[in-house]
Amino acid sequence: MKEVVKQLIQKKGLLAENEAKDLLRAYGIPTTKYFVVSKEKDLENITIDFPVALKVCSNRILHKTDVNGVKLDIQNMNDLRIVFKDFKKRFPSEKFLVDQMVEKRVEVIVGLIQDPTFGLSIMCGIGGIFTELYKDVAFRIVPIDRYDAEQMIEEIKGKKLLEGFRNINANKKLVIDLLLRVSKMGQELEQHIDQMDLNPVFVYQNHICVVDAKLILK
């Protein structure tokens, strides 16, 4: 087990977004590039190209948008400083995440949840704003194999979005690989994970990217 994993699973409750993404990366799961800042001077050290997003980065705030803690499509350093000053005034004790903006593609959601009957389960569905609207998701008990992952996608009504519908370039095999990596992570950390929500995950032709991650430890 990697050292970063050992350190993070010592924590309890909600992880800050950078911690959740650090854990994902330790299992080979691609995420956006990000940089944690706590004071305005830290902005001088970021190595992420604009446009970027600024997010409040806290283990006390589960839904960042509910507290107006996310600003997207910041185009330059001057605008970033303006947004940072506003965030710092409203969240004086928190750190902040400068996050890479990536081009939107087909969105999927992947998650882990502790089921009282079956134990840790993995979930996959069409992500973004349609998740709650259509409830288009499939579940399996962890661990899963490649066949299980393939069947999960087959059960999703929106699977055509991953199969070239209207020339949309989204690689279904990358979603299968992601499900297998999340399953491995869940299997190894089953005694520590309460729930995890990766939404959205953007699926491209040649790569996949976790844009937002929420992870709660027991």
Results as ranks from 00 to 15, higher is better:
residue 57 C to R: 03
residue 215 L to C: 15
residue 50 F to H: 00
residue 155 E to P: 08
residue 142 V to H: 00
residue 211 V to E: 10
residue 21 K to P: 00
residue 114 Q to N: 11
residue 120 L to V: 11
residue 103 E to I: 00
residue 125 G to D: 06
residue 47 T to S: 15
residue 41 K to I: 09
residue 201 V to H: 09
residue 200 P to Y: 01
residue 137 V to R: 01
residue 49 D to P: 02
residue 69 G to A: 12
residue 9 I to S: 02
residue 56 V to E: 09
residue 16 A to K: 10
residue 90 R to N: 15
residue 36 V to I: 14
residue 156 I to P: 05
residue 125 G to H: 06
residue 89 K to F: 14
residue 16 A to V: 00
residue 179 L to I: 06
residue 194 D to G: 09
residue 66 D to A: 10
residue 15 L to C: 07
residue 141 I to N: 09
residue 46 I to S: 11
residue 21 K to H: 12
residue 108 V to W: 00
residue 126 I to W: 02
residue 42 D to A: 14
residue 180 L to R: 03
residue 151 Q to T: 10
residue 215 L to A: 03
residue 213 A to H: 15
residue 54 L to T: 00
residue 202 F to I: 02
residue 211 V to L: 15
residue 173 K to N: 13
residue 155 E to T: 06
residue 183 S to M: 01
residue 149 A to L: 08
residue 136 D to G: 14
residue 72 L to K: 07
residue 4 V to H: 01
residue 68 N to I: 04
residue 37 V to S: 03
residue 15 L to W: 07
residue 53 A to F: 10
residue 57 C to V: 04
residue 15 L to G: 01
residue 168 I to P: 08
residue 172 K to R: 15
residue 7 Q to T: 11
residue 38 S to E: 15
residue 37 V to T: 13
residue 74 I to H: 01
residue 172 K to H: 08
residue 47 T to Y: 05
residue 5 V to N: 11
residue 14 L to E: 13
residue 190 E to N: 11
residue 28 G to E: 08
residue 11 K to Q: 06
residue 58 S to A: 08
residue 82 I to E: 12
residue 68 N to K: 14
residue 6 K to I: 06
residue 39 K to S: 09
residue 114 Q to T: 13
residue 136 D to N: 11
residue 79 D to E: 14
residue 75 Q to W: 02
residue 4 V to Y: 03
residue 138 A to Y: 05
residue 156 I to C: 12
residue 65 T to E: 12
residue 7 Q to N: 14
residue 206 N to M: 04
residue 65 T to Q: 12
residue 113 I to E: 03
residue 65 T to N: 10
residue 110 V to R: 01
residue 111 G to I: 07
residue 195 Q to S: 14
residue 65 T to A: 14
residue 213 A to G: 14
residue 78 N to H: 06
residue 142 V to T: 02
residue 108 V to Y: 02
residue 18 N to F: 14
residue 11 K to Y: 03
residue 77 M to G: 02
residue 190 E to K: 07
residue 38 S to Q: 14
residue 47 T to F: 02
residue 33 K to I: 06
residue 1 M to V: 08
residue 143 P to E: 02
residue 79 D to P: 00
residue 51 P to D: 05
residue 210 V to M: 07
residue 30 P to H: 12
residue 145 D to G: 12
residue 133 L to C: 13
residue 149 A to D: 08
residue 5 V to E: 10
residue 149 A to W: 06
residue 112 L to G: 02
residue 76 N to Q: 00
residue 119 G to M: 07
residue 57 C to Y: 05
residue 137 V to I: 15
residue 11 K to A: 06
residue 21 K to M: 10
residue 123 M to D: 04
residue 39 K to A: 08
residue 144 I to G: 06
residue 51 P to E: 10
residue 69 G to F: 04
residue 111 G to P: 09
residue 71 K to Y: 11
residue 93 S to K: 14
residue 8 L to E: 01
residue 97 L to K: 03
residue 81 R to T: 07
